[in-house]
Structures are given as structure tokens and as C-alpha cells.
Amino acid sequence: MSQTALADQAAPPEASIKAKPLVRVRDLKVAFVSRDATVQAVNGVNFDLAHGEVLTILGESGSGKSVTMRALMRLLPKRARLSGEIQIDGDDVIAMSPQSLSDMRGRDVGMIFQEPMVAFDPVFSVGAQIAETVQRHMGKSRADGLKRALELFDLVQIPSPERRLAAYPHELSGGMRQRAMIALALACSPKLLLADEPTTALDATVQIQILLLLRQLQRDLGMSVIFVTHDVGVATEIADRMVVMYGGRMVETGGVAQVIRSPAHPYTRGLLSSTVHGASRGTRLEAIPGSPPDMSDPPPGCAFAPRCQLATPECTAGPPPPIDLAPGHTARCIRPSHPE
């Protein structure tokens, strides 16, 4: 199957007809090379992201979801070997010069992380750091930068924003820090927001506030968002489209309702049916046996085959092609479950 045919199956049909996608990724591979082993963390990923769309990448640890996202901004360590094609708004990210990359990060693409303390310098106030981004990327004065910071604190619903601008990161509570980090990421009105498990470390009542805030901001600002998570509930709350990753590959793609209601890939089905939500007390959970693959020695065929109840010898022969199940819904499996 040609690369373009693969790509079209991963892209939402309306978007590919109406407008060019904001993000275009083809055959992305990332390997971490060290003396002991080469770990193939991402093993051939293709997707498109339309303007104004929210895509969630759902996967467990080791699936390659965070590495995929960091590859989009080339935020990978030196020992990472990147290949494939990444285009953001028509620009080739892999071929970009360090200067262009530096310009892109923060101005065109913003990122929020699981741990807000990672994003902030502990020795400067949060207001100063936001102002710095604005000064650097948009050439504004410091006074303008601080004005923008105040606007942003209002946008992310931080109470008493003037006072909080002068605070140091450690002086803010968990939820406030997370909001401040979102403000920092949005400072230059980026077209694309990358979110790496931003709510995982938050309490339940704070998590839902942040999720709703992100949804509202995305709608109001028309941003595209790629949101990485391991939590099905979080993905359901925020996604327009969902991608499930396993063993460095995308095993299923579709609209969020399609994937949640009619999961086709055995891994997605296993993941959804082993969630505890709604399970009756006393009955056994349908757990997926075994553990995720060792990516220093990736299986030749389907990465999930060793744990799959439906596996046949054909599955281990080579990576399964994407099969169309419905418009916009694909699964990389030769024995997918078709929707009812």
C-alpha cells in the first residue's frame, strides 16, 4: 500500500477535502541508540491533525505516545534518531534549522506538561516568565509582556491575577500552577497546543476544572490540540478524534464516539473492557494477559500479537495494514471487530 493511501485513511475525510491539515506526520520512527541497545520507541506513525481539532493519543507506558509528541517539536535527546516526515503548517520540522526550531517553539506551538514545575524556572516569578516569552517571540516591550500576562491569567481563570503574577512557581498551589503553565503555553497564541498528561498528577476535582478550561480555551481560540493520556475517561472528555497507540504504532484511529462505542482493535477492546468503570463487584475483570513488548527488540509483525487471543501466524509475519471500518475509523488489524 502506498504511503499516500495510508495517509488518507488516517485523515478525517472532511478535512482532507476542505483544507490542508495543520499537522502532517508520515512514517515517523524514533529510535534511542545507546551502547547496550537500540530502543525503537516509535515504529512508523502516520496521522493528520486538522485546524481546530482535538486529537487524543491514548496509550500505556512504553506505547510511544509521549515520544511521538515530543518529536513534533524535536524535543528529544541527542541520542534519538528521527526519520520520516513531520510538517507543521507546511513547514518541514525535521529539516528545520535550530534557529527556526527555537522560533517555532512557543510562538507557533505551545506545550504543557504533567509537572508544571518542569515548565517554570523556580527563581523567577511566573509573570516575568510569561512576559519573557512574549518579548522573545513577538518583540514586545516588557511592559506589554506583563500586560499580556495579566490578560492570560484572566483567560485561564486565576483569581486575583495581579497578585499572582508576582508569585514564584513554588508559591502557587497545584491547580494554580497548572493554569499558569497553560497561560505560558498560550502566551503567543500558538496554532497548536501539545499536552502531555497535564492532568495526571492532579486531584479529581482539580482535574475536571483543568479539562473544562482546556476545552473552553480550545473552542474560543480555535487552536488545534494534541493531548496525550493513559486515561480513557480524560480522553473521552476532551477528544474530537482519538488514536490508540501500542508498541510504537497507532493501532486504531477514529472519532472519539467511534473508538469508545465500537472499538475494533483487540488491544483497544481489551483496554476498554478491563477498565474498572461500571464493572460489577465480585466479577473478574477481563484483564489483558502478559505485559507490553520490549521495544529494544520489537516483534516483527503486529506488536500486540503475543498477547492477543485472536492472533494467527499471519499476524506475526508483518505489520498489519490499516483496515477501514467506517468513514474516519481505521484499525491496524487483520481481524478487527466490525461495528454492530
Binding site: 479529581a204 476535582t205 482535574q207 475536571i208 479539562l211 473544562l212 486515561d231 480513557v232 475517561g233 480524560v234 473521552t236 472528555e237 477528544a239 472519539v256 464516539a257 469508545i260 462505542r261 477498565t275 468503570h277 461500571g278
Partner: peptide, 12 residues
Amino acid sequence: AMPSMDPEKRTT
């Protein structure tokens, strides 16, 4: 505060 598991019935 638990996230909804139904994409048609999201938390508002």
C-alpha cells in the same frame, strides 16, 4: 468530578 465515559454526555 470523575470524567465521563460517554462522549455524548460530557461534563459541562
